[in-house]
Design a protein around this nucleic acid. Sequence first.
RNA 1: GGACCGGUAGCUCAGCUGGAUAGAGCAUCAGCCUUCUAAGCUGAGGGUCAUUGGUUCGAAUCCAAUCCGGUUCACCA
Length: 605
Amino acid sequence: MSLVNDIKLTTKKAVDVLYETSIDETGITVSLTKPEFEGDYTIVLFALLKPLKKSPDVLGNELGNYLLKNHSDLFHSFNIIKGFLNLVIADTCWVNFLSKNYNNTNFGKQNISHKKIMVEYSSPNTNKPLHLGHLRNIFLGWSTAELSKATGNNVIKSCIVNDRGIHICKSMIAWQRFANNATPQSTHTKGDHFVGDYYVKFNDEYKKEIETLIGKGVEKEMAEKEAPIMKAAQQMLVDWEAGKPDVIELWSMMNSWVYEGFAETYKKIGADFDKIYYESQTYILGKNLVEAGLEKGIFYKEDDGSIWIDLTADGLDKKIVRRKDGTAVYITQDIGLAVDKYEEYKIDENIYVVGDEQNYHFKVLKLICQKMGLPSAKGMYHLNYGMVELPSGKMKSREGTVVDADDIVAEMINIAKQKTEELGKVKDFNDEELIDLYETIGLGALKFFLLRVDPKKRMVFNPEESIDFHGFTGPFVQYTYARIKSVLRKMVIAHGSWFMENADANYELSAMNYELLFPLEKNLLVQLEQFPTIVAEAAVYFDPSKIALYVFNLAKTFSSFYTEHSIAGAESEEKKYLRYMISQQTANIIQTAMQLLGIKVPERM
RNA sequence: GGACCGGUAGCUCAGCUGGAUAGAGCAUCAGCCUUCUAAGCUGAGGGUCAUUGGUUCGAAUCCAAUCCGGUUCACCA
């Protein structure tokens, strides 16, 4: 139970007793007291004035006096400024909180929700390597899943591999024609990059063929349709769905190259999945469902044989669900997959982490599932996020402006290496420890950068200015953690671990009085206490940026505190224990918060 | 054209379920390492919260209109 909640509930009770009026505690606004006023938390009285027919001063005084008298364990004093009732929380309350939780490495994790949730993320196409946009997706999906777990849910991380479709056929055609049987091994190229090169090659050839046709006097639109290489790709898709052995063989071989490449990247960035779906396996179920829907009259057939659904009555358009040549489109397999997931896991919620450019697609998908009466429609939620853009605008693979995932990861790690070497603080590390540290910092910087902004908003990445290691960044938080751990190690050496681990027992709570906590100590305690609330909020809104912001602010406050007050050399034994406990809990929370973002923290850096 | 999303400091972003004088980081400038790690700390400058109107005790926050930017409405995925 959070302190803010306690304040709300006691206030509700106070109003009940004092005025015999029942109010909803969610209607009580409790906020942090502004630094320029005395107090920790503030009850905003305006909303209560009318129903209780009181002036701000009278209500504030009556309420304040009641709270003080009946909850002296919680409140120390109060003051009223205009319509704001500022409450000073009792120091014993803070210290009790601290001694109860400072050694709990799971503090912040809670058991308040019990749903079965699938989070689908990453979901790559197997025709090209991952790029920066995928990284935002992956970090967001992974973190969201962990946040959901941290509030008690049973979470299944899943991934749909888009391993079939016309785009895959494009790489296949290009490889057939231009590769001379080259392989990733023979060219020493990472498999996903290798296949991606042929996807690019296809588009180059396609463009050339269009130009040739236009040169012969063919209309542009016609040329795009009739280019031989495109025809070949389309034929290959038909052959694939028909199960033509040589096509299937080529397809499996090229996909296996891509999977090897992806596996390497996933391992590097710490992505993992409990269940992997392949579109090549779900699309048939989708096609069958379309067939069934056609019989039920949910879909209709055009004269050319294509199958559609008319959503104009719902304010949307008509949507194709099967091509005239009988092959499945993107949405066909998504219908199948939704059913598949539900049948196997009976999930309460089915979260799709997919970019906001597909908002319309998911609106349509959910609507189709609803119209088909599928139980899986209910829990569908499209967790959409904004695109990662360059200062010049959208990343475009055709213009070569895509920031490759492997490249940016390698670059971040390299920058971490350079900076670490410049600072020269870990000269005694062996090679293994160094590599580990560079990865921790480099990936920490990258993940934090991508997770610190509201997922819903599109974000700009400027490759010219490399990602910062100062300020609101992963390395700053990691550095704060390393500094805390350094102090804690020294204190354990000086006092012995048993002594420090039982700091609360050695600390005389009774000696506390209000003047004892310095502002920075108090600020830290206030922030530490809020952590579980932040975790719950971030989980509910699927928003890791709330964690990033919180942990940064915590680290910032700690850094000020660290500069202002000595921990190991505190002015009294009491203060030493107090600050030890504060430091210990801050470290624990930083570690937990960063873990929820998928970021490791180093003991030294 | 329809639908949806966004516009806050030079730049990148918080704040948006209405509350006190709108906050961070970067960049700029000025300070701080014989004291627990300076990837740090302290301070300064920097704002018509796109515009206009409305709702009310109170609006960056809610509503409407307008302007600007984006996404989408594919027999691509």
